[in-house]
Design a protein around this nucleic acid. Structure first.
Length: 425
DNA sequence: GCGTACCGGT
């Protein structure tokens, strides 16, 4: 008990605690106080200790609310087993988990990718006849979307509306996303009208979700019209919107407009981020504006703007396209020196560049090195090497590579090495 | 109690 008080003293007024907790004076008051302390506690272990005290020392049955607070903290700390235990404990004490309890459990397990667990909590909730509310339904819509079950998301949305709940901005934005993924473009656009009719003003996220849906489906011209609709509605832009539009302009071969938008961001009070830079870099590369690309890349370094693996992969691709193969290779060294680890995309880009430059031996050697080093080689990386061999007319090598891809248990890893002498430039 | 959108390789 003393230890417990000491630990509680870290977050509360020690004097007050002692006064209220001399439990033999007024037990009811100290319990009430402890429950209120509990509601402000965010450390999961301390809140658990508090709950135990209420349970055991005070022999008082905590409320569902008290359990919900502790379960929330436990879930935030990703203590899944403890959460299960608390849920069972509630049941044993004949406390009925409510929609908050279920909402938290479903959301946190779902967010962690533990979809099966999340769905089993939903099942329990339905068995308990606990009615959903807006937040719970929104969470379920998001969960279904992440699972790729768009028709489930759509049916939850209509269940929500049927039960008389008015969707809010977040729910509508989620649905725009769902309709977009389900390729129901018209329905996604209709959401904008429906939300306005229900007094919910579409925000930046609503529009940029539609914009990225357009991009994902190569509807770049439609993106332009959505963008002007957004401007007409006086909806403010942010970095994400600008990034999407820089991409759109690039895809439409409107590098000038992309450029103009990027360089006007700061005037609009939007700080371009690494994604903005990476996107403009790619637009420059696609437009064969190699000088601009190199300049931008080095400008980032001079100005100390964050560069990541995508920045380097993009720039490596550009050097490949401008036939500066050595510089592409140098960038791999440079990124490693700066602590940015190359990934499968870096390697497939560089292998494809070397193969096209007629340096198949070098490409094969790198591929071999990756295999031996145990770096994860994904489908595209294999495919890149297979295509490189095929283009060079080395069908046997391509076949060996395909066999390793299709059946990684076949131990043919050493074979390409045996062929290597013929390949050296 | 909960929460959404943007960049790179065949």
């Amino acid at each position: 008990m003393d230890d417990f008080l000491k630990s509680m003293a870290q977050t509360t007024n020690e004097h007050e605690l002692y006064a209220l907790l001399s439990p033999y004076k007024d037990r009811q008051l100290s319990i009430r106080f402890m429950v209120s302390v509990l509601s402000h506690e965010s450390d999961w272990q301390r809140s658990l200790a508090l709950l135990d005290w209420i349970n055991e020392v005070a022999s008082y049955r905590p409320s569902v609310f008290a359990y919900n607070v502790v379960i929330r903290n436990v879930l935030r700390a990703k203590q899944w087993v403890v959460a299960h235990g608390l849920f069972d404990e509630m049941r044993q004490r004949a406390l009925a988990p409510d929609r908050y309890t279920y909402s938290m459990l479903i959301t946190h397990f779902g967010k962690e990718g533990l979809y099966d667990s999340a769905l089993s909590w939903l099942q329990k909730m339905e068995q308990d006849n606990v009615p959903g509310d807006l937040v719970l339904y929104s969470n379920l819509i998001e969960l279904s979307r992440k699972l790729g079950d768009y028709s489930k998301a759509i049916s939850i949305f209509s269940r929500l509306k049927r039960s008389g709940i008015r969707p809010d901005l977040v729910a509508y934005n989620s649905m725009i996303h769902v309709f977009g993924k389900a390729k129901l473009f018209l329905e996604a656009r209709i959401m904008l009208t429906e939300m306005r009719a229900n007094g919910v003003t579409p925000d930046t996220v609503s529009y940029s979700t539609i914009l990225s849906m357009c991009v994902e489906n190569d509807k770049f011209v439609e993106a332009l019209s959505v963008f002007s609709e957004m401007n007409d509605a006086k909806c403010s832009l942010d970095s994400t919107t600008c990034n999407i539009m820089i991409d759109v302009y690039g895809q439409l071969d409107m590098a000038k407009e992309a450029d103009r938008l990027f360089w006007s961001m700061r005037k609009m009070g939007i700080e371009p981020n690494v994604v903005s830079y990476n996107t403009l870099l790619r637009v420059y590369g696609d437009g064969e504006l190699y000088g601009e690309a190199i300049h931008l890349f080095r400008l980032m370094q001079r100005k100390g703007i964050e560069q990541n693996v995508v920045t380097y992969n993009t720039m490596i691709k550009i050097y490949g396209k401008s036939l500066e193969h050595e510089k592409a290779g140098n960038l791999v060294q440079e990124m490693q020196k700066r602590g940015i680890e190359p990934n499968a995309i870096t390697y497939s880009t560089i292998i494809s560049i070397w193969a096209q430059a007629g340096k198949l031996g070098r490409a094969a050697m790198l591929f071999q090195k990756l295999r031996i080093s145990g770096i994860e080689i994904d489908q595209v990386l294999y495919q890149t090497m297979i295509v490189a061999y095929e283009r060079a007319g080395l069908i046997a090598h391509a076949a060996v590579c395909s066999m390793s891809l299709n059946n990684r248990t076949i131990s043919l890893e050493r074979l390409p090495l045996r062929f290597l002498p013929e390949l050296v430039e």
